[in-house]
Amino acid sequence: MATADDFKLIRDIHSTGGRRQVFGSREQKPFEDLVDLGWLKRSSVDSRATHYQITERGTSAAL
């Protein structure tokens, strides 16, 4: 179930172009929650960072 923080984060991601790069596993937790909701997808993972991209469902949630 989505929380107020989830909606705040997806709106922030949407307003800044729909993509986010995250460093460190602790910082990934809120983004992984949005992946579980179907609002974000992991577009790539490298040794230092994970890249996320907003989905259509995420765009709808952000509006």
Rank of each mutant, 00 (worst) to 15 (best):
D12A: 10
H51V: 15
E56L: 10
R11F: 10
T50H: 07
K41L: 13
G24K: 09
S15T: 10
E32V: 06
G58F: 01
G18N: 03
T16V: 06
T59N: 07
Q21S: 15
T3A: 05
Q21A: 13
W39E: 00
H51C: 14
A2V: 06
V45T: 10
K8F: 09
K29D: 05
G58N: 00
T59Y: 07
W39L: 02
H14V: 07
G24H: 12
G58S: 00
K29G: 09
D12I: 08
T59F: 06
Y52W: 03
T16Y: 06
Q21C: 13
Q21I: 15
H14D: 03
H51M: 15
P30W: 05
Y52G: 01
M1R: 13
R26Y: 12
D5N: 11
G38W: 03
K29A: 08
R19V: 13
K41W: 13
S43W: 12
R57C: 11
H51N: 13
Y52H: 01
L9I: 04
D12Q: 11
T3H: 06
M1G: 13
R48A: 14
S15E: 13
I10D: 00
R20V: 15
Q53D: 08
F7P: 01
F7H: 05
S15W: 09
L9G: 02
E32R: 08
L37W: 03
L34Y: 01
D36K: 15
E27N: 15
A62R: 02
S43Y: 13
T59H: 07
H14L: 13
Y52D: 01
I54K: 00
I54H: 01
R42C: 07
L34V: 02
E56G: 08
E32I: 07
D36Y: 13
L40V: 06
G24F: 09
R19S: 14
D36F: 13
R26A: 15
P30M: 07
D5A: 14
Y52A: 01
S47Q: 12
Q28D: 04
D12K: 08
I10R: 00
E32D: 11
V35S: 02
E32H: 06
S60V: 14
R42D: 03
K8A: 13
R26G: 12
D5G: 09
R48N: 15
S47H: 12
S47K: 11
R19Q: 13
D36T: 14
E32W: 05
G17A: 05
A4R: 10
T59K: 11
L37I: 06
T59D: 04
K41A: 12
R20N: 03
A61G: 02
S25P: 12
L9F: 03
L9K: 03
R42P: 06
A4K: 10
L9C: 04
S47N: 12
L63K: 08
A2C: 07
K29E: 08
L40N: 01
V45N: 08
S15L: 13
T55W: 00
F31Q: 01
L9P: 00
H14R: 06
F23I: 13
G17Q: 06
I10L: 05
K41N: 10
D46S: 12
S47E: 14
E27I: 06
I13N: 00
V45L: 08
R19T: 14
A62W: 02
R26P: 09
R26S: 14
S25L: 08
L63R: 07
V45C: 10
R57M: 14
S60P: 02
R19D: 07
T16D: 08
G38L: 04
Q53H: 10
G58V: 01
L9A: 03
T59Q: 09
H51T: 15
Q28R: 11
T55M: 02
F23Y: 11
F7Y: 14
E32G: 05
S44Y: 15
E27L: 11
K41I: 15
M1V: 13
K29W: 05
Y52L: 01
E56M: 09
H51Q: 11
Q28G: 05
D33N: 14
V45M: 09
H51L: 15
T3N: 08
A4V: 12
T3D: 05
G24I: 07
G58P: 00
M1H: 13
S47W: 09
V22M: 04
K8H: 09
A62Q: 02
E27Q: 12
L40D: 01
Q21M: 14
T55R: 01
S25M: 10
H51G: 08
F23W: 10
L9N: 04
G17F: 04
Q28V: 07
Q28A: 09
D12V: 07
A61K: 04
S60D: 12
V45E: 09
L34I: 02
A49I: 11
K41C: 08
A62H: 02
R42H: 07
G38T: 03
S15H: 11
F31L: 06
Q21H: 10
V35T: 04
H51S: 13
I10K: 00
T55N: 03
G18P: 02
R20T: 07
R26V: 14
T55L: 03
D46Q: 08
Q53C: 09
S60K: 14
L63V: 09
R11N: 05
F23K: 11
L34N: 01
A49E: 10
G24M: 07
K8W: 12
R48G: 15
V45S: 11
G18S: 03
S25E: 15
L40Q: 00
D46G: 10
H51E: 15
G58T: 00
E32F: 04
R57T: 12
G17E: 05
T55Y: 00
K41Q: 12
G17L: 04
S47G: 15
G24R: 08
D5H: 10
H51P: 02
W39F: 04
F31R: 00
R20Y: 07
D33H: 15
R57S: 13
L40S: 00
F31W: 04
R42F: 05
L34M: 03
H14S: 06
R48P: 09
G38I: 02
R11H: 07
R19A: 11
K41D: 12
L63M: 11
E56W: 10
R26I: 15
D6Y: 07
M1S: 12
V22C: 05
R57P: 07
S60Q: 15
A61S: 04
E56V: 08
F7K: 04
A49H: 10
R57K: 14
Y52E: 01
R42I: 15
Q53F: 09
A4C: 12
P30E: 06
K41Y: 15
A49T: 10
D36R: 15
L40A: 02
A61M: 09
L37M: 06
T50A: 11
D33W: 12
W39N: 00
A2H: 05
G58Y: 01
S47I: 11
I10W: 00
L37E: 02
A4D: 12
D6M: 12
L63G: 05
K29C: 05
E56A: 12
T55P: 00
G18W: 02
